Amino acid sequence: MRFLATHPVNVGKILDSSYRLLMASYSKLLVYMFASGINEIFLNDLIEKVSASSFTALLEDPQTSVSLFVGFTGYYLFNCLCTAGMTYRINNITHQQQDSLLDSLKFSFKKLPALFFAAILYWLAVIVGVVLLVIPGIYLMFSLNFCFLFIILESASPYQSLKASHQLIKGAWWRITGIYTAPSVILIVLILLIAMVFSQFFPNDKALEDSVTNFLVAFITPYFLVLGYVQYHDQKLRKIGSDLDTRLSN
């Protein structure tokens, strides 16, 4: 079964390809999804600890500050590991190549340093953009979003991956952002509805409600990985065609 087109396609085809690829990949991603759900619960616990303390109190208690820093770093490292592992398996299913969970873990650990440093550069760029004028931050959030795919699929360095992602999305920002936004809104509304229904049955169990919400997010996340993967390949085809047209016109 072919999941990636050999020529640029419309939005409907991208969404259809993403759904089919997700269904074909889902069983191979379950371990990563469960692990991601536990990681999200861990993050939730860290955020609650930060919320319960004032900034001044954290500065006066270096031990707590260091433990929180280590916790957030560990969360993000594990998140990068899961992203690499899932993308590796999605790519192998696309190209009909056999792999195992152990293969994906070995691959993920190899890519982990580059992914982690790229993530730091990515969020620094986004935060600076938001602080300066909000809109640049939103622009960079999407224009640099394919950096992890360049690292995982093309072995780019952290800086090269960010630069390549920006170049790839240049001129197609609205289209790519729009494709991400539509399913995001639908899924956010769905999660909120499920959370509201759940709170009616368990009104006094906030921890259980948060856990269910975190696992829902973890089980939905692979769709956006697949959607990004399909868009990445579609946009590369568009760039190749555009570059060819430019060379021919010259």
Rank of each mutant, 00 (worst) to 15 (best):
M1L: 10
R2N: 15
F3L: 14
L4M: 14
T6L: 05
H7D: 04
P8F: 02
V9P: 11
V9D: 08
G12R: 10
I14C: 09
L15Q: 08
D16E: 07
S17H: 10
S18Y: 01
Y19W: 10
L21S: 09
L21T: 07
L22Y: 04
M23Q: 02
A24P: 14
A24V: 13
A24G: 11
S25N: 03
S25I: 04
S25Q: 02
S27G: 03
K28T: 14
K28N: 13
V31G: 04
M33T: 09
M33K: 07
A35N: 08
N39K: 00
D45C: 06
L46V: 13
I47K: 03
E48A: 08
V50H: 02
S51V: 06
S51C: 01
L59S: 09
L59P: 05
D61W: 00
Q63F: 05
S67L: 11
F69Q: 05
Y75R: 07
Y75H: 11
Y76G: 02
L77P: 04
L77E: 07
L81C: 09
C82F: 15
C82A: 14
T83W: 05
G85H: 07
T87A: 13
Y88G: 11
Y88P: 11
R89C: 06
N91L: 09
N91Y: 10
I93N: 08
T94C: 13
H95T: 01
Q97G: 05
D99N: 14
S100E: 04
L101A: 10
D103K: 07
F107K: 11
A119L: 15
L121S: 10
Y122Q: 10
A125Y: 07
A125F: 09
V126I: 12
L132N: 02
L132Q: 05
Y139G: 13
F142Q: 04
L144G: 06
F146S: 03
F146N: 03
C147A: 15
L149K: 00
F150H: 06
I151L: 10
A156P: 00
Y159V: 14
Q160H: 08
Q160S: 12
S161W: 07
L162W: 08
A164S: 15
A164E: 13
I169G: 12
A172I: 04
W174Q: 15
R175H: 14
T177H: 01
G178W: 01
G178R: 06
Y180I: 15
A182T: 15
S184F: 03
I191P: 03
L193Q: 15
I194M: 05
I194G: 06
V197P: 06
Q200A: 12
S211D: 08
V212E: 01
V212R: 00
V212L: 05
T213D: 01
F215A: 00
F219D: 00
I220F: 00
P222I: 09
G228N: 07
G228A: 02
V230A: 08
Q231P: 02
K236E: 11
R238S: 01
R238N: 01
K239C: 01
D243S: 01
L248E: 03
N250T: 07
